[in-house]
Amino acid sequence: MFETLKKLKYGARVLLSRSGGQPETVDVNGRSTVIMHAGQGAPFVYLHSALGESLMWLPFYQTWAKEFRVLVPTHPGFGKSGGFDQIDTVEDMAFHYIELFDALGLDEICLGGVSLGGWIAAEIACRWPERVKKLWIADAPGFWVDAEPLPDLFRVMQDRDALRELLFHDPNAHMAQLIISAERKDEDLMTAYQSMTVLARLVWERPYNPKLAQRLHRVRCPVLLLWGAHDKLVPPSYGEAYRKHLPQAEWKVIPNCGHLPMFEREAEFVEAVAKFCR
């Protein structure tokens, strides 16, 4: 009962903040890209995870929008963003984004993301370090750690309980139940399938970039590495791998948190990122 109330409360917050973000479609060299944005101040770009949390303006964006100009683009192939036929690798994603930033006239940005989004952010920062003022990466793949192989997300994705278990520290908590709900409409199934298709194209044959380690030294800006202490999908050892190649990085582990800190430990996560970007 209590958990249901909490779910309803989050729903209400989503409703209240919804009007905050304005969706727009930007043409990026033929790739029609959906982007939501709100707020004033320094440009702050959030790159979403494979969950596709960019499709709706969520409360945590709204919190950031109080002090930054928050931009939340949807990756090619996700939701209503086009251009998936031009995407084969994470590097293609990086090129897509630098062209989006050019199109929007964003010269210097605070850039970060969770999971897949964090990895793309790192790839962008390696290639165009002068464009990234601050870089934050949360629970992101990108490396391969022999001692702790990444589990196969595609193996468990059909099993809602197993998926919830993999993504959350506490799979019984209301946010876990809300984000990975038991019941799904056809439309949600199709959206999820589409999102997983994009992810599969990027990581199916090799779930990391073997060149990342030798390129990260090019990143010159301050870096924040944020990890859920109990991330079972991309364990903290992957954050340690980033850290090894980004000696300037601040390392912050979020206790009682799994793979999705923006949902499982929202307040702590949002504040850590905001503080770093101020």
Partner: peptide, 15 residues
């Protein structure tokens, strides 16, 4: 069924 093996519509139809 791996994602992308078929279109989203077919995937739902298969399920």
């Amino acid at each position: 069924s791996p994602p992308g093996y078929t279109t989203p519509r077919s995937a739902v139809a298969i399920i």
